[in-house]
């Protein structure tokens, strides 16, 4: 199965729900009137784009319909698809320059950081990269064991300390280990934390600083794991995590449910953070590199 098919399959539910809503809108109106825009707005709100963005996007569509003299609802639909795919476009590839390249995965509790790392490790290994893991979630019960199982599955080394120890110290050791073992990529797992907890964000900043200091030559990808079921709060998450560590991309998880994950459009517009990976299942192969066009296409096609 090609990447595109797999993506489409994974997004099946997502696509169907949005497509269903959008299609019914376009079928219901054969002329482009205010009712059409209003219904479109609703469809976008259902996709978690939020009222503000939904209005902004339909306004943009309204403008384009006027300037491009679009008269058929079917063409208006294509135009909306263009608008969304354009909003999502950006550099979605991973920067893995320098040896070891570093990936740090951050996010609130329960979004799927550890699982994503497990899958990401498999993906990078399949590209011939030597990966090493750092178990820097020393807070949550059994989080280290959880990552250890993923390390076993992928047959890679994992650096760990005891539960309750300083996560920055784990990362410090992991940086040294990655250098001495000549790893291509070091992936750091971190504890889930709510973005509005000041002390926990300070802890994260410390981890970030340690990586910057210990591996100054390495590229550093800071990936924010984001649960696709999250609503408007995702923007707050992105904003506040970005203040702590310079986020370079998003891993949009749990897209295999009925949630649409439309909030990434807001984040891209507001903070210019691109999505780099999407999670579409629980299997080790269910993490895919993000392709904005395919995503938008699968979403609204």
């Amino acid at each position: 199965m090609g990447l595109f098919d797999k993506l489409k399959q994974g997004l099946g539910k997502t696509r169907e729900s949005i497509k269903g809503a959008v299609d019914s809108v376009f079928v219901a109106f054969n002329n482009i009137g205010e009712d059409l825009y209003e219904e479109l707005e609703e469809a976008l709100i259902f996709a978690d784009l939020g009222a503000e963005t939904a209005i902004a996007l339909t306004n943009e569509l309204r403008e384009n319909v006027k300037t491009k003299r679009i008269s058929e609802p079917e063409e208006a639909k294509k135009e909306l698809y263009n608008i969304i795919s354009e909003a999502l476009s950006g550099d979605c590839s991973l920067n893995l320059s320098g040896k070891p390249a570093v990936i740090m995965v951050i996010g609130v509790n329960g979004v799927g950081k550890t699982t994503s790392i497990g899958k990401m490790t498999a993906l990078l290994q399949s590209k011939g990269k030597k990966v090493i893991l750092a178990a820097a979630d020393t807070f949550r019960a059994a989080a280290i064991d959880q990552l250890a199982i993923w390390a076993d599955r992928n047959n890679v080394t994992m650096i760990r300390h005891e539960e309750g120890s300083d996560p920055a110290a784990v990362v410090f050791d992991a940086c040294a280990a990655a250098k001495s073992r000549n790893a291509d990529v070091l992936i750091c797992d971190t504890a889930g934390r709510l973005h509005n907890k000041k002390n926990l964000m300070q802890e994260l900043e410390k981890i970030y600083r340690v990586i910057k200091r210990e591996l100054p030559e390495s590229s550093l990808e800071v990936l924010l794991a984001l649960d696709a079921t999250t609503g408007q709060n995702a923007v707050n998450q992105a904003e506040m995590f970005k203040e702590t560590a310079d986020i370079t991309g998003i891993v949009l998880t749990k897209l295999d449910g009925t949630a649409k994950g439309g909030i990434v459009i807001n984040i891209k517009k507001k903070l210019n953070i691109p999505v780099k990976f999407i999670g579409v299942g629980e299997g080790i192969e269910d993490l895919q590199e993000f392709d904005p066009e395919a995503f938008a296409k699968a979403l609204l096609e």
């Binding site: 079921t229 999250t230 609503g231 009925t258």
Partner: peptide, 12 residues
């Protein structure tokens, strides 16, 4: 239910 859930909360 995660208090941060969006529109999908109704489906779930």
């Amino acid at each position: 239910v995660d208090a941060m859930t969006g529109q999908d909360a109704v489906n779930v």
